[in-house]
Design a protein around this nucleic acid. Structure first.
Lengths: 191, 191
DNA sequence: AATTTCGGAATGAACGTTCATTCTGTTACC
DNA sequence: GGTAACAGAATGAACGTTCATTCCGAAATT
């Protein structure tokens, strides 16, 4: 954590390229070039390509959590907490379109599926807050009577779809549309 | 359309491999082997790999439309039509998990994004029915007052998310859960 | 203070592998 | 016997990774 320069440049370049071109369109040589670094140098910081990809994902995930938790209170009413987390998350994606596109690439890849399998059993990271929230909502009967994974899919599905549309330029989300989007997500899962 | 044997076997093998392993994990040689065909033979039926991928997509799309339109009446009340199309689509994905996974692969790839761009302007295929439906719903004020692309994203997001969960084995959708899923989608977009 | 030594960070050419595509000889059909 | 279909080996490009070498700044030595 105390060697910022090259390592950071490599991650930045890799994030840009992966997000914009997909994993395909981003050979190591190109990442190196964009990072202003020799090809071999990457391997001083990352054992191999897969590990670079995974570390990038971990970094992004670690970045998101504090952002969405900012101003969050577990004492607030259920719906308010849902709206808070949802709209923070959507805002994060809007502010960091490359992060969003990277995460989508990651999830639609062998890495992502493997990662998902693990999460379903024990788990940590971003999901934990959400999972906790949804479990509570289920118990309090404020959410629809459905299995937990379904509730999560139902709530995130529209959010991600709208974020994708915004980032690909098919709609332009302003403050009002952000709110309406999250309220629509709420309608999806509320009892 | 009048040379079924080899061509069809190649498409079947390619669909299986692409869906299960992603575009990466499916080299032409392997597709050929699984199709019981020489590697060069593929190129008698498809100019190159990209075209095979695109034709596969077109075939799937052409397959879906009649399936979801089966029993559809444009005279039925709006909500009933929405539920009909949605649950037919979800059922299709459940009955054809490989098709679903292929379509996801396709959409998260350069092909898919390009294809999407075209659709947004003029368009044909599956989207047309849905687009028409949503436009009508907007006009009749039975749907939320949001831009059309957002309504589509909001309605499809949860459907696709739940289908993904089912196909990856995270939930098991039965008849009741299918209905509840589509009703949740309806809640997402209804005014 | 100037000079030398030294550790390890950085480099990029070279390697081995993988893969889409093409080529070539063979088989099947009319 | 000629033509089209076919299989699979050959080809060459692209890529991830390695490694012998260079480079650089910080001790050590004078």
């Amino acid at each position: 954590m105390a060697k910022p320069d090259k390592r950071h440049e490599i991650m930045r370049a890799a994030l840009d390229l992966f997000a914009e071109q997909g994993f395909h369109g981003a050979p190591m040589a190109l990442i190196a070039e964009r990072a202003g670094v020799g090809a071999g140098t990457i391997y001083r910081y990352f054992e191999n390509r897969d590990i670079l990809i995974k570390e990038l994902f971990n970094e992004l995930e670690a970045d998101i959590l504090p952002f969405i938790l900012d101003g969050y209170s577990d004492q607030a009413p259920f719906r308010a907490r849902f709206i808070h987390l949802g709209s923070r998350l959507l805002r994060y994606f809007i502010q960091h379109p490359l992060h969003f596109r990277y995460l989508e690439q990651f999830h639609n890849s062998p890495y992502g599926v493997a990662h998902r399998r693990d999460k379903i059993l024990g788990n940590e990271g971003k999901c934990n807050v959400f999972k906790e929230l949804f479990e509570q909502g289920s118990a309090q009967q404020v959410l629809k009577d459905l299995p937990l994974p379904m509730l999560i899919a139902l709530a995130f599905g529209p959010l991600l779809g709208v974020a994708r549309d915004h980032i690909l330029g098919f709609v332009r989300l302003d403050e009002e549309l952000i709110i309406k989007t999250i309220e629509a997500c709420w309608d999806t899962v509320k009892r």
